[in-house]
């Protein structure tokens, strides 16, 4: 299981890019942490989600 924003999902083996493509996130408005480390945008396609990973997708909204 992979924990994403606190929710346990059965998606181990998928890449981060594949997971994000199935969501409503705008890829230009997010930052992704994996086990406390930033995942560089250029590596979303090669980052394979592992059993036990903890992922945080930080979604930015406008205003400032």
């Amino acid at each position: 299981m992979v924990k994403i924003n606190g929710e346990q999902l059965n998606i181990a083996g998928k890449t981060l890019a594949e997971y994000l493509a199935d969501t409503a996130y705008n890829p230009r408005r997010i930052a992704v942490e994996r086990n406390g480390e930033i995942v560089p945008k250029a590596r979303y396609g090669e980052t394979v989600l592992q059993d036990g990973d903890s992922i945080e997708v930080v979604n930015f909204v406008g205003g400032g």
């Binding site: 230009r28 997010i30 930052a31 945008k41 400032g64």
Partner: peptide, 18 residues
């Protein structure tokens, strides 16, 4: 980070963290 647009916020956060 004190930008207005979401895309700029994400750009800065990704750039700084990387």
């Amino acid at each position: 980070e004190a930008f207005d647009k979401a895309e700029n916020k994400a750009m800065l956060v990704n750039t700084v963290l990387e």
